[in-house]
Amino acid sequence: MSSASIQLISRFVILVFVQVLILNNINFLGYINPYLYILFIMLFPVRNNRTAIVFISFLLGLCIDIFSDSGGVHAAACVFVAYIRPTFLKFSFGTVYDYQTIKFNQTELSTRLTYFTLITVVHHLVLFSLEVFNISKIILILQKTLFSSIFTILLCLIMTILFSNKRK
């Protein structure tokens, strides 16, 4: 087993535990929680094939679902963003993506922010739409998406900045 896959597996496990044991209990202002675990999908190596990432994202979402009794909402949202991730990659990184040579640590902060924002907002929108499951409560869905997204994006950026220095 290569060191890259060990790193991926440990990242998976750590993110799931951090999410269910710490971040699910933050409940800032009553209902705002960050969903940091999608950092796994964001930082998944670009070179690997798309089928793998869709499947692993499903497992990731299902793990979170089992711990938080939420049916399949996290799994659905994760599969969705994992599937449309290449589109977002192309949109935010442009030609660099075509050569398949993205190293997330070396990208500029502004492009990384665009990429994180796109994935987070889409993930949260799917997540909360399925969780509320009621189109007449669209305001509640948008409200939750907005506030949780801000929290998640900030946390993701802080995490990538904190942990990128170590590997240089």
Binding site: N49, T51, F55, L62, G72, A75, A76, V79, F133
Partner: peptide
């Protein structure tokens, strides 16, 4: 289309689980 089909399958499974939990 294996990625798309896998996506459809897994998305369907999670939707099923979601609806069931309701």
């Amino acid at each position: 289309n294996k990625t798309f089909l896998l996506f459809l399958l897994l998305f369907g499974v999670s939707l099923f689980l979601t609806i069931q939990s309701h």
